[in-house]
Computed example of a mutant assay.
Amino acid sequence: MTFTRRQFAGLTLAATATAALGATPALAGSDVRKGTLSGRQGYNVTGTVKVKKVDGKTKVVLADDYVFDPAKNPPDIKIGFGSGEKYAKGSKIHDKLTVKKGEATFEVPAGIDTDKYDELYIYCEQFTVILAVAPLK
């Protein structure tokens, strides 16, 4: 793509004005994907999740509205990624999810390319059961 000097100057002014007003430029939106968890297999799991790229690292954020079914306690809860309600082996981001309510942030290991997946999962690794899914947009 080629810009004229006038177009480039206009883009520069727009970016400067946006930054001065404290807003995030539209181009930065690709660094954050969001989704809403919904339970599976009889589990009541709700809340917002974000997958963010910050300073070369990818993070999964469970928002403060996140709640994992308080009536259930599966033995081996994990967070991972996949598509089409199929968990992708090798996409696990931590050893065990112990947070049942509220905000939490997890760093995604460098070898996992989250852009390849369109869903985030909370699942029980021991029994290979998906407990909640959040489609990411």
Rank of each mutant, 00 (worst) to 15 (best):
A9D: 09
S38F: 15
T46L: 12
G10P: 05
G111V: 08
I77Q: 15
Y66G: 06
L11P: 04
V67Q: 13
T24Q: 08
K92N: 14
A110I: 10
Q7A: 12
S38R: 14
D113Q: 05
T105P: 05
S91E: 01
T98L: 12
A26M: 10
T12L: 13
A104I: 07
L136S: 00
K57A: 14
I77C: 08
D115M: 10
K53F: 05
T18A: 12
Y121W: 11
G47Y: 01
N44C: 05
G10K: 14
R5D: 14
K34P: 04
L37W: 06
T114V: 15
A14E: 15
D65C: 03
N44K: 14
A104N: 12
T105F: 07
E119H: 09
V108T: 03
K53G: 09
A17G: 07
S83P: 11
A63F: 11
V67F: 09
L21F: 13
D118E: 08
E85I: 12
F8T: 07
K86Q: 15
G35C: 05
K59E: 10
A71P: 07
F8E: 11
R6E: 14
F81L: 03
A14F: 12
T12G: 06
A17M: 11
G47R: 04
L136D: 00
L136I: 01
V67Y: 06
S38M: 10
K96N: 11
G22V: 06
A20W: 10
G47H: 00
K53T: 14
I79F: 02
S91D: 01
V67H: 09
G90C: 05
G90A: 07
D76Q: 09
T36I: 13
T58P: 00
D65Q: 05
K78P: 04
